[in-house]
């Protein structure tokens, strides 16, 4: 950096500065490490608690179990009220996968239109799309429920997925718009000269180049849909259709009085896919989040 210029000026000052920087670095590292421990503690607690037998909760307030056991997981696997845990996991997976497909398809179409097609009204609709990022969800919940109730779609997965299929989540559209804008137009132009229309350009040129955006969006879409609690809560009324978050709540209500260990183990299992995605794709996720703020 500017060590070069400093070095020329006053060697003593630079050495002092280096030393200060060295100690500064160590202090920073210490603070950051301590913060990491504190921040990650809840996760550590969750993992440790899931191996604690139910009877120890309330008596053993330490982190580690006196007699670690796998019994909680065994109990949890049996599910609740005759519905095995695997049913809920499958439900969540199906819904999340379908959401990913819906989001990728609809958001990329919309993003292409905003980024590459100069159509009349694009500015207004783009602004409208950005505006939807800031619309509080309260004002949508009840009317959407009324609509779905009126069309007899309550207790199906349609309400959970329809919005995804219609690019309702502006985050993904925005992310893809930013991404497409960064793709140079030369290839478009070349294809245009060859006689390609927008659909062709979209399909053969843009989509293949959007792989990173698709992967990032796909992972976020999966995780957010997996964790979604509100929509399944109000739309799913048959327990066998529950996704993990609502099943977890049923679990909590029905067994936390008698079997807190099972509730904790179920909480842990519910987080595993999210943590898994995170561990494998953290760089992509973080990059995806970062681009959101730039040129916001």
């Amino acid at each position: 950096m500017s060590l070069h210029t400093l070095g020329r000026k006053r060697p003593q000052a630079s050495r002092r500065k280096l030393a200060r920087r060295g100690i500064g670095s160590v202090i920073l590292w210490a603070v950051l490490s301590l913060s990491t421990l504190v921040v990650l503690y809840p996760l550590v607690w969750l993992v440790a608690a899931s191996f604690k037998p139910s009877s120890e909760f309330g008596r053993n307030n330490g982190l580690l179990a006196w007699q670690p056991t796998l019994a909680n997981f065994v109990k949890v696997w049996g599910g609740i009220a005759g519905i095995p845990l695997s049913t809920f996991l499958v439900n969540s997976t199906l819904v999340a996968c379908a959401a990913v497909v819906g989001i990728l398809v609809s958001s990329s179409l919309a993003a292409y239109a905003f980024a590459r097609v100069s159509f009349k009204g694009s500015k207004i609709f783009f602004a409208a799309m950005i505006a939807t990022l800031f619309v509080p969800v309260h004002v949508l919940i009840i009317p959407q429920y009324v609509i779905f109730n009126w069309t007899g779609l309550v207790d199906t997965y349609v309400p959970l997925l329809l919005g995804k299929l219609l690019a309702v989540e502006a985050f993904f559209v925005f992310l893809m718009v930013q991404f497409i804008r960064n793709i140079p137009r030369d290839l478009d132009e070349a294809a245009r000269i060859d006689g390609a229309g927008h659909p062709r350009i979209f399909w053969s040129i843009i989509v293949p180049l959007m792989r990173p955006a698709f992967i990032t969006s796909g992972i976020f879409a999966f995780i957010w849909t997996w964790n979604d609690f509100f929509a399944p809560l109000i739309y799913l009324t048959s327990p066998e259709k529950y996704t993990m978050p609502v099943a977890l709540r049923l679990f909590n209500d029905a067994t936390s009085t008698s079997d807190y260990g099972a509730t904790v183990a179920a909480s842990f299992i519910a987080l595993l896919p999210v943590l898994g995605f995170f561990l494998f794709f953290q760089r992509l996720l973080i990059q995806g989040v970062a681009t959101q703020g730039l040129k916001g």
């Binding site: 239109a113 159509f119 949508l140 919005g163 299929l165």
Partner: peptide, 19 residues
Amino acid sequence: TKAGYAFLVPWLIGFFGLT
């Protein structure tokens, strides 16, 4: 404009119908 709106159809339905 035609092409743009063609691509935008899903989003438009979502925007007007669900938002």
